[in-house]
Design a binder for these strands. Structure first.
Lengths: 262, 262
DNA sequence: TCGAATTTGTGCGTATGTATC
DNA sequence: GGATACATACGCACAAATTCG
């Protein structure tokens, strides 16, 4: 298990703790030895003990709670997030459906503001160069949670050219709040025909990890989703989910053309 | 940009450095200020300066080279890998098509062997418990390259129950070598109707990173692909691509059922 | 409600090892 | 070899969060 007899003290201490987790001696939710405790037991400095615990946290095997302790957190089998079936449904957003299917309680918080779209978003929405300081999109930041635990972040951008003057300018306002983009757009006569998702992965920023209550440096799966009505983009969103919690499931029929440009 | 006026010194220093990268003052490959340099310039301790640089490294914006310095490493614009259009085509595998479209020269090496499927693969292929030591799948390991550079690894599993006694038992043998699974299966009267891809991300193992000529610890996007003919699985594959090189593009029409179990 | 004890996190200092130039 | 750089390891102090009596 050990590589090259491990020159560094903090790595050896981390190995030792990891082994106690692997063997089952320390179980999910158990408290790991405290920094001062470890230091005293092993005759090492508190800094070194702290470094060792940080290794486990960065590996996702533990979470540190300030003032309380460091606790074992075994990686769960990632949940499947279905992203290609039944995309349009009259009852709630795709996320809610997915959580329902898995018997978990979905929740979300959001914050909308009207802004001028940055250039990357302009590209994705097919907007022309801005004229002066005109605000031309509604940006909504979501935090989605399952059983009260934050699990997905999303930033949605909707062009005011599409929604201005309609009852759904603010996504989470009015009768169709929480209904998903497709239903809201349909209600103002803009049916969404096609979707495109661009999937990647990267390390989470400090801010993202904090909002997801994840260790800094966690791997995130990123989705850039764009919705089309005919040939025009009517919404685009940046979605991130922690890679250790979710896998995305796409599916389709073979040999069919199913993209927006055909 | 800053949240809650950033209580912590090392985070403020990190912000400052990040801003110098974002603004273009520090470019790809440039050396960031050294730990002692930062400490002297800003009147902070070396430990704090070191912590600030670690933040950028953990965000993937910089790499630290012991004895040399810490250098800016901007993420490259990833290539798009189309995974939902024109899945079945008579001319070459989906990977070849994709590279063609981008004007890059596709290549691959492979190695096939007949083995007994491990339990996880049995699940994915819907195989029963093995009887003794019977070998029941053909496993093929691929390394795909673009312009001579390795960019994608794939391990494919095909049940012998489907291909035994046919000319395509070995994927890269005979007339249909390099033609993709769908064409090969079709040639023996097994049309592939549906595909399912499960997408995740994780750190690459040392071996994977080496085979991809990537730095150890790179983030990989993982795909578990399964092909169905009717209700039976006829192939499954584990595909990995470096997250800094590729994003995956999926697309579809809204509100259609397009999965294998409907 | 308050305070004492504990724990993590941050920040400072120093020293040493080792890689790079 | 010498200078410089990062990484590890030690020490200490204090702040902030949590727990518990």
């Amino acid at each position: 298990m050990n590589r090259e007899d491990e020159r560094h003290l903090y790595l050896r201490v981390a190995d030792q703790l990891r082994e106690r987790i692997r063997s089952g001696e320390l179980q999910e939710g158990d408290r790991l030895p405290s920094v001062p405790g470890l230091a005293a037991d092993l005759g090492i400095s508190r800094s070194t003990a702290s470094e060792a615990l940080k290794v486990l946290v960065s590996e996702g095997l533990a979470v540190a709670r300030s003032g309380s302790g460091t606790f074992v957190r075994l990686p769960r089998e990632p949940q499947r997030l279905i992203r290609a079936w039944y995309r349009s449904t009259p009852y709630g957003s795709p996320f809610m459906q997915d959580m329902d299917r898995q018997g978990r309680e979905a929740g979300w918080t959001y914050e909308s503001q009207t802004v001028q779209a940055p250039s990357e978003i302009r590209d994705r929405l097919g907007l022309d160069e801005p004229t002066g300081d005109v605000e031309d999109v509604v940006r909504t930041d979501y935090v989605f949670s399952a059983d009260g635990e934050p699990v997905m972040l999303s930033t949605s951008w909707e062009p005011l050219a599409v929604t201005r003057g309609t009852p759904i300018v603010l996504p989470e306002d009015g009768m169709l709040a929480g209904q998903g983009v497709a239903e809201r757009m349909l209600s103002i006569g803009v049916p969404i025909d096609d979707w495109v998702e661009e999937v990647g992965a990267r390390l989470g920023t400090a801010e993202e990890c904090e909002r997801l209550r994840h260790a800094p440096g966690s791997i995130l799966v990123t989705i850039q989703r764009t919705y089309y009505s005919g040939d025009t983009q009517v919404e685009t969103a940046d979605i991130v989910v922690p890679a250790d919690r979710f896998t995305l499931v796409y599916s389709g029929k073979m040999g069919r053309v199913s993209g927006p440009d055909q």
